[in-house]
Simulated scan of single mutants.
Amino acid sequence: MVTSLLSTDDLGQARALVEASGLRFEAPYDDLVGVFEAGRLVAVGARQGRVLKMLAVAPSHQGGTLLDEVVTELVGRGYQDGVDSFFVFTSPALVPGFEALNFNLLVASGTTALLEYGDGLRRYLSRYAKQVRAGNNGAIVANCNPFTLGHRYLIEQAAAAVDQLFLFVVREERSLFPFGARLRMVQEGTADLENVVVLDTSWYAVSSITFPTYFLKGGDPGGAIQMELDLLLFARHVAPHFHVKTRFVGTEPWCGTTAAYNEAMHRILPPLGVEVQEIERKSGMDRPISASRVRDMLLNGELEGIAELVPVSTLDFLLSSEGIKIWVKGESK
């Protein structure tokens, strides 16, 4: 029977089993469950958001159904919490075992493979099937936190070079402005560009699943692997579905993580059939325009200069009661 691990003894046994299996015991987590036999923990697993982790079975009990039982329990609890897709990172050698548990391999690189439980990627791509036209298409993946004239300039340049431009807005809720607000700013700011299709990334590009380092600007030791997995997923699944031949990106003069991601694009995508075009950032007030600059001005009360850095539609939102509540709340954190 799979049960929650709550007591100090439970956690001690969980840590010991996880570490004995060559994994790290990683907090935080939303669920930590396990299976006991005669008071001894013989299987363990955890879920943090959409990621299943710390999945381990004692050597004496491997080859049976315990891993399946733990995964089924974690997925069931996740569904109850409103999570509709689940992912696991593992070594390529263990992929067949997870595939037998209804996981689908998304990408693998070196020592790491990313798998998804169920068919979420297929459902995501099929959602936009009617909007896709074959041709010389391009793509931009952007957070737009908030949407600026710099974003608008990049989009204009890209849209002029392709038949259809897919603008993927990062869905992850780890920004000052929530996804719904960012999406609306982008839609209103590009409404006049007829060949631009605005859509969301779901969990399949620049998310806490595929590229968590993006949201941790200090970076971490796994950043290079995460970038590679994120870009491989885009090149092998997303780009072919949308007939994307070119991915456009703005130059990055400040953020080391984003600059490294741009460099990884140039290295990884062209061999897989996706060219990379890096466009010089648009400047405003004698400096390159960036969303972080706009956020800093908002939080410092420098409202007059913002009009030179964002479209009218964005400025209207930022100064609306809804927009003010967002960035004033951000200031108080």
Results as ranks from 00 to 15, higher is better:
198 V>W: 03
256 G>I: 08
30 D>Q: 11
245 K>D: 14
28 P>A: 10
36 F>W: 05
54 M>W: 03
252 E>L: 09
181 A>K: 12
52 L>C: 06
272 L>E: 07
296 D>V: 06
65 T>K: 10
21 S>H: 02
249 V>L: 05
163 D>W: 03
209 I>K: 00
19 E>Q: 15
295 R>Y: 05
254 W>H: 15
33 V>Y: 01
274 V>K: 05
74 L>G: 02
132 V>T: 12
208 S>L: 15
247 R>M: 10
310 V>T: 06
102 N>Y: 09
110 G>T: 04
168 F>L: 08
299 L>C: 06
5 L>E: 02
282 K>Q: 12
243 H>M: 11
48 Q>D: 15
249 V>G: 14
158 A>T: 05
293 R>N: 10
275 E>S: 14
253 P>S: 14
211 F>D: 13
2 V>N: 04
160 A>W: 01
79 Y>W: 14
109 S>R: 01
23 L>G: 11
273 G>P: 03
237 H>Q: 11
163 D>E: 13
146 P>R: 04
34 G>D: 00
32 L>F: 00
244 V>E: 03
303 L>I: 08
248 F>G: 13
206 V>K: 08
67 L>Q: 15
54 M>R: 03
237 H>E: 11
121 L>K: 01
120 G>P: 05
300 N>W: 01
9 D>S: 15
76 G>W: 02
10 D>F: 00
250 G>P: 04
31 D>M: 01
22 G>T: 00
210 T>D: 06
285 M>T: 02
320 S>M: 09
152 R>G: 07
149 L>N: 14
281 R>C: 13
67 L>K: 14
179 F>Q: 05
20 A>H: 08
91 S>L: 15
204 Y>A: 04
203 W>V: 08
192 D>A: 15
57 V>H: 01
258 T>L: 12
93 A>E: 15
227 M>W: 01
53 K>D: 06
108 A>I: 06
270 P>T: 04
90 T>I: 02
217 K>G: 10
166 F>N: 11
234 F>C: 05
265 M>K: 14
139 A>D: 00
138 G>K: 01
168 F>M: 14
